[in-house]
Design a protein around this nucleic acid. Structure first.
Length: 451
RNA sequence: UCCUCGGUAGCUCAAUCGGCAGAGCAUCCGGCUGUUAACCGGACGGUUGUUGGUUCGAGUCCAACCCGGGGAGCCA
């Protein structure tokens, strides 16, 4: 029996071929032998299918070949698709009653077994780990999230205008940047496209940039990468309140799209989706003042940070929140929560101070539930050129470097706002992963540059 | 940078008071017609992160260093 005589199908489509003879091409994910009966779990990138090889249904030569297959051997199997409730797989419920097998390669002993492994080992073998079902599922959800991001923005009047990755200076003074040699001149890998986005809205009205950003922070936590992807929408004629409305529509769409399109993937990840199903506008909004009061009430009562053995630390008005504060705040709500009007002094120079209360600014962070932390940071931008020049001076930044940015306020300034959404944290939240390293194919963490 | 936990077979781990370094998985051989991380029998597998020290004797105790995990700060 020649495999090429039958349609070559992907496992995802198997349900359309019940009782037909087809060929699958892929890799052996797992094998259990029962004497004259062998069960092969075959991956092809689109799903996992159980193939049943019974001695007598295939040639003796083929049967011996199957017994010799190792994990991750590449092969093609031809047989009849059967609806079979006992069959595991993605999608489950179908199996292939095998009649012929073509082995492309017998794989060397595969280092990643179905048993447990440590993080260090898995990261050293990331190029192979990607094949494991949980990693496969998370990266497929990531792809859907990216698609949802673009679909929502593209269909709501935003133009994708990407911004440079090689930049001459820091957008926000404090963060550590990766520096490179730009033909003898120091340059840096971008940590945000925001300033360029602000130029772009004066040409296009509503824009977004979407790409990798770089932070050379010595951060070694489940929420941090050195290289991560961020989508940054920026909107002309939009104030803080308008911004929050856009953010909650946008995030809700992303979540609902994943629930609709990623059922099998979320099942593999064993994600409890009850929290996610509640994600719809409006999201709760709390003022920084109120957040400080909530934290200090919890601190006084000796409450613990959810998920940690430590008590909620008290905070003084004017300080930025630490991770334990954000974790505590987010846990008080069952939806993402907006925290707005942070103190001006802890935020970036370009954020618009509140007119009748300049010690707070028109900024807003969105905190994800279940301990996933800040997934969005955004603000209304300063639109008056004189106030912007003063803010640049107050932050001891060189005005000459920002002349082009000040120009944006000299030639038709308007109220405008924007935000940045971190893709990896969003993926971690929606997938219920405990570390962002599993949300991107080749994560760059503090200690992982290779593979 | 700081705090904290760890490093023993390819992988995941065990080793009592300082006294012969041991299991499971993977791999190889044999058995099994419904397996779901199958199961049963056998084989193979070790410079205990590195260097130095204490001791009759160190995986175990001491010191320094290297590597990794989690967290703080900072951030998305």
């Amino acid at each position: 029996m020649n495999p090429v005589q039958h349609p070559v199908v992907r496992i995802q489509q198997l349900g359309d071929y019940v009782d037909q003879t087809v060929t699958l091409r892929g890799w052996l994910y797992h094998k259990t032998g029962k004497g004259k009966l062998n069960f092969l779990q075959i991956r092809d990138g689109s799903g996992i299918c159980q193939a049943v090889v019974l001695r007598g249904n295939v040639s003796d030569e083929t049967f011996e070949q199957v017994k010799a297959l190792t994990q991750e051997s590449s092969l093609a199997v031809t047989g009849v698709v059967k609806a079979e409730s006992r069959a595991p797989g993605v999608p489950g419920g179908f199996e292939l009653d095998v009649r012929a097998v073509t082995v492309y390669q017998i794989a060397d002993p595969y280092p990643i077994t179905p048993k447990e492994h440590g993080v260090e080992f898995l990261m050293q073998n990331r190029h192979l780990w990607l094949r494991s079902s949980r990693q496969w599922a998370a990266l497929r959800v990531r792809a859907v999230i990216v698609r949802a991001i673009r679909d929502w923005l593209d269909s709501h009047g935003f133009l994708n205008v990407d911004t440079p990755i090689l930049t001459p200076a820091a957008a926000e003074g404090t963060t550590t940047l990766f520096s490179i040699d730009y033909h003898g001149e120091p340059a840096y890998l971008a940590q945000t496209g925001q300033l360029y986005n602000e130029a772009n809205i004066f040409a296009f009205g509503k824009v977004y940039c979407f790409g990798p950003t770089f932070r050379a922070e010595k951060s070694k936590t489940r929420r941090h990468l050195q290289e991560f992807w961020m989508v940054e929408p920026e909107i002309a004629f939009c104030d803080l309140e308008g911004l929050m409305e856009i953010e909650e529509q946008f995030v809700s769409y992303i979540v609902q799209r994943c629930l609709a399109d990623c059922g099998p993937e979320l099942a593999i990840l064993e994600r409890d989706t009850t929290h996610l199903q509640r994600v719809s506008p409006p999201f709760p909004r709390i003022h920084y003042d109120e957040a400080v009061a909530m934290i200090n009430r919890a601190a006084a009562a000796g409450e613990l940070v959810p998920g940690y053995p430590d008590p909620v630390p008290a905070i003084e008005w004017g300080d930025d929140f630490g991770s334990p504060h954000e974790t505590y705040l987010a846990a008080q709500f069952d939806k993402p929560v907006f925290v707005h009007h942070y103190p001006t002094q802890v935020k970036a120079f370009y954020m618009e101070p509140e007119a009748d209360r300049p010690e707070v600014c028109r900024s807003v962070d969105l905190l994800a539930p279940e301990g996933y932390g800040e997934i969005i940071g955004g603000s209304e931008r300063m639109s008056d050129p004189e106030k912007l020049i003063a803010a640049i001076a107050r932050h001891q930044l060189p005005q000459s470097v920002y002349e082009w940015y000040i120009d944006l306020r000299r030639y038709g300034s308007v109220v405008h706002s924007g935000f940045g959404l971190g893709v990896e944290r969003t993926v971690a939240w929606i997938c219920g992963l405990d570390h962002v390293r599993e949300t991107i194919a080749f994560p760059r963490t503090l200690t992982n540059l290779r593979p």
